[in-house]
Structures are given as C-alpha cells and as structure tokens.
Amino acid sequence: MSDITISERKAGDVTILDLDGKVTIGEGSVALRTTIRRLLGDGKNKILMNLGGVGYIDSSGIGELVSSFTAVNKEGGTLKLLNLTQKIQDLLAITKLLTVFDVYDDEGTALSSFN
C-alpha cells in the first residue's frame, strides 16, 4: 500500500492536488514526482498543492517539493502551496524555503492569486 494518496480537483484552470499521507523517501516522493510530470505533460501548469493532510515529510519529500517547483517553473507554470502543517512550516523555515514558495492558508485566496 502506498504511503500517500494524491487526489486531483479543478478550479478554473488551476489544478488542486490534495495530498494525504507521508511524503518521504521512496513511494511518497515518487508518487508526487509522477503526478507533477503527468500534469505538466497534459499542459496543466497552474498547480496548487494542498499539504494539509501530509502528516509526515522528510528531506527527500522537501526535495521533491523543490523539484516540483522547478519543473513547473521550467514549463512556464506556477506551483503554490496550501495549508502547511506546523511541522512542514518548521522544516521549510529551517531550509529557508519559505522564501521560495508562495504559501497560503486559505484556498480561495490561493486560487485568486493565480489570476
């Protein structure tokens, strides 16, 4: 069984990914990478990643968030983060990645920011 479930929703031209589970070395990171690559392949390059259901993330998972961010940027798109848990927020602060990611705690505000 996979450590993570990634559900997909649409809001206009923005794809919202609801992540539930662990984004860690191995399956969790690979599942995220596969999903992002597929979306980009389909021309969906406005992505809002909802991390509210992510109970655990490690350095590999943080690295996968960064890889997703750079892959989306490379395709001329935008990736933003929604609903960081306190733990993820702490890890992004330690790594100084809060300065890189556009982060929201309200879905409506996040969606508006894409326009």
Partner: peptide, 15 residues
C-alpha cells in the same frame, strides 16, 4: 543551493 533537490538531511539532523 536553495533549489537543489538534495542535501538537506544533515541540516535536519543538526536542527
């Protein structure tokens, strides 16, 4: 190095 995919594990251990 901020946009590199790897190299944060030791930082977490130390933190």
């Amino acid at each position: 190095n901020l946009l590199k995919a790897n190299g944060r594990g030791i930082l977490f251990m130390r933190s």
